[in-house]
Amino acid sequence: MNPSRFICLKQTAFLLIMGFAWMIPSMSGWGKDVLIVLSGDDSFKNFASKLEAELSDYQVERLEVNTDSDYPIYKKTIETVKPKVLILLDNISVKFAQKLNQSGQSHKAIASMALNLKRLLADDPHIAGVAYEVPGYTVVSSFKKYVKPELEKIVVIYREEEFHTFVKDAKTQLASSGVELIPVKIDGFAHLPKKMNRIIKKHLTRNPENADAFWLINDNKLLTKDNFASIWITSARKNKLPILCGLKNFVNPSLGFCTFAAIPSEAGLASQVSDYVFSVIDEGALPADIGVDYLLETKFYIDETKYKHFEFSITDKHRYLIEFVK
């Protein structure tokens, strides 16, 4: 063979091999630091973008999962990508991770934006997390600190089977701020709507505990499409006591429902989750050491009409912290 032709072939082969080697990682995502597993909803996608910005020092890949039938894709992606840490958003990705861990392939993970993670991950050594529910301590103590300093007693209606730890923690934590939390259980009554509605109505309109406010837990068994307008809104509009909640949409003068809301700050949550990712990758922390934490950064909203009705007064020093909804 002509020597110059042989050199030319060698160069071509080398370039092909290099090109192929370069393509393998980009095709398969091999060796990524972080895999974000999320469902396809826009709120998860927006949050994933915030996480990617926080984790710009790492190689991050996304995987969307939506139904149980996506589990094989999830499993295959984990095996291909081999991420150092998984970020699990939504309950379906937590479910997939627990299923794979139980099969013997455990992967370190941080979960968030899923319901009841404190309970779901209580005995899971492989998945740490940040609970998505705004803790009672945060919403109530912030309301006391910024809006109603004289608040001493607050009442909450809850389902023991689902929210036992959440309410128990809140009671202990609020005691340190000088607030007495009065829990009212409705177990059993959730299946008897009439009885449950009677309890809700009684506490919102007659205030038998003589509480200073009412803390509403986001629970779709408590707030149903059947009782939302007829019981909750009708009772709240009587303005017997301010209702504190964890949903921005409920603070709306035209609705007349919640007075004050604390909702998760997406930027703050992304920062909290990425700090734990950093701890695992760079500091060698184990998910079991991190545990499932409460979220820290929240945004506050207050209904301006109710603010005037209850004659609250927020000092200039704190006004920038709370958005007035007109």
């Binding site: 301590y137 934590q173 340190s176 922390a285 050491d289 934490d293 409460y294 820290l296």
Partner: peptide, 20 residues
């Protein structure tokens, strides 16, 4: 054993109270 960072001083006390 473990270090957790926050962005703002205002989040420090809640870390203690919430058990983070």
């Amino acid at each position: 054993k473990q270090i957790k960072r926050v962005n703002k001083p205002v989040d420090l006390f809640p870390m203690l109270v919430l058990g983070n």
